[in-house]
Each structure stands twice: as C-alpha cells, then as structure tokens.
Design a binder for these strands. Sequence first.
DNA 1: GCTAAATAAATGTATTTACATATATTACAA
DNA 2: TTGTAATATATGTAAATACATTTATTTAGC
Lengths: 150, 150
Amino acid sequence: MSLEQEIKQTKPFKSNYEKTLVNIMFTNNWIHFKQNKYLKKFDISIQQYNVLRILNGQKDQPITINEIIDRMLDKMSNASRLVDKLFAKGYVSRDQKVGNRRACDVKITPKGKSFLEEVTKSINGIEKDMNKLNDAEFEELNSLLDKLRN
Amino acid sequence: MSLEQEIKQTKPFKSNYEKTLVNIMFTNNWIHFKQNKYLKKFDISIQQYNVLRILNGQKDQPITINEIIDRMLDKMSNASRLVDKLFAKGYVSRDQKVGNRRACDVKITPKGKSFLEEVTKSINGIEKDMNKLNDAEFEELNSLLDKLRN
DNA sequence: GCTAAATAAATGTATTTACATATATTACAA
DNA sequence: TTGTAATATATGTAAATACATTTATTTAGC
C-alpha cells in the first residue's frame, strides 16, 4: 500500500521532498509500533533497550552518562534517568569514576547481558516483517538516508 | 558524516538491514529536532501541527475524530486531546455531528488557516537543510520506504 | 590559593504518550 | 421492545519526554 493510501491522503504531495519527510516519520512510527509490541512483554522501553545495547557494545569498558548521550539516537531524553531504571532492574552497574568524581562509570552486568540476549532474540521477529527489501536495496536506502542528513 | 560516526559506533552493523532500522530512527529524530526548533516559537507541538494540516487538507469539509486518527502518522496519540488543545487556541471548531450524536465534526477555522500558513512558511526553512538529494533520489527513497513497509 | 567558568550528572516540572477504562449513543437480534 | 454488542469519543493514569535548573566537582585565570 502506498503512503498516500496508508494515511488516506486524497491530494498528492506537493513534492517528493515533502513526501519523504512524511514517509520517514510514518515509517519510523511503523517500526516503533512493531518494536514496542516485542519489548512490552519484557517490561522495558525502547530507550532503555537502546541504552542497554550501547553498553553491551562497549564490551567490558564502562562509559559515562555523557558518552551514552553521544551514542543515543535520541539525544534529548534523559540518559541519567534511563540508567536509573536499568540500575534498579540490576541490568547495569554505576560507580563513581576514579579520577573524576563528577562522572560515573556505567557498565552492563551479566544479568543485563543475558536479559539483552533474550530480548534481542525476540525482537528479531520483526525481521520477518521487514524482509521486503534485498541487501542491495537496504544498502541503497542507507546511503540515501546518510546523504539526506549529510 | 556516516551514521556510524554520528552515533560513535565502533563496531560495524551486523547487516544492512539492522543499519536501516537504526538509520530510520536516527533520521526521524534528526527531522523531529529540526522541525521542533521551528515550531517552538509558535507554541505548538508537531502532533498539533499535523492535525491542523490534516484538517486544512479537508478544505471545508469537517471530519470526525476517528477520521483524524486514520490520517495521523502516529495512530497512538490522543486525537481527542489534540483537538482539545487546538480548540482552546481557536484554531478549530468542534460540533456535534448531525445524524450521529456520538461523533463530532471538526473543522479548521479561519484563524487556524492563517496561523497554519505562517507556521508552514517558517517550517519550510528546514528545506534548506534537506536539499542534499535531487528529485529522483527523493523518489527512490520514497519507493524504498514504501516497499519496506509493504 | 582563591574565584569564576566549565563540566558531569541529578533533579524539578509541565506536557505528552500509551495505554486502559468509562460514558454516551447507535445498531442489531431475539 | 429490550437487552447486547458495537461505535465514537472522553477521561484517568502511570510513565516518558523535553526541557530548565540545581548540585557537585574540576579547571583555569589571576
């Protein structure tokens, strides 16, 4: 189904540029909705899941709150409180950084690691909803998005 | 700058598919941030702006709350309360629908129309941040996104 | 050393989101 | 008709978001 049909738009978009804006927002919501469906049963939000993935990507090296913000997709949300939530669940550790008492070292715990593995296994289910493009097309889509943002 | 650099990701993505997911979310946040910058000075949220655009697209035909939801990019948010906000600002009218007392007719007001014109004029400023693709590339991007969601 | 500026994180808060539930009205079936 | 289901919207709410502000610590200039 075309985007126009999907949002029941009667008149066509003024330009391909304008359609792209709406298309990206709509597709993002489409992904968000699907991801959320999988994450809900693990009682974790998408933001929390993403922070956990960032920490997991650091292997055994701790990173600070500011470094987490740098790596987050959505810079605006509150990394400090997201870490709080993950800490309360036992998925991350948080210690004062040696040499800089303002900063803190955040690290994924073994419990967090195995939790993340489980969640990731489940969330890969959306992959079957997204096998409509082949690898070359995914690559092309990526390079167009990269170019768009420059 | 590549997406990997942008989010300071050290290890490469496992697949182009996985990168696409992150890329769409990141690009959406990038757009959201830019739009928000323009909308803030008009004291209106992106969701409210989008509802106003939907109503404007209906010309002089009123539509119901459910029809607005159908046309919204983000189906989950509360159309009823968004209309409330716009009504309080005098940008829309809301009357009981004749023939169905459950439903209501929502329509953009002249005040809403001229407000929307002003906002749209301003928000088109982001276009200059997004002229990195030519028309054919926007079209290609659109068809890839459409195909992705199928 | 002392003070001002800069930095890192935490906290406050108004608004928005993501639902679940309630209320009102209409449609349908026995 | 008389209850039952369906529909349209409104309301309640816990949590998350989008900031602004505060606190604590470090750095730099004098």
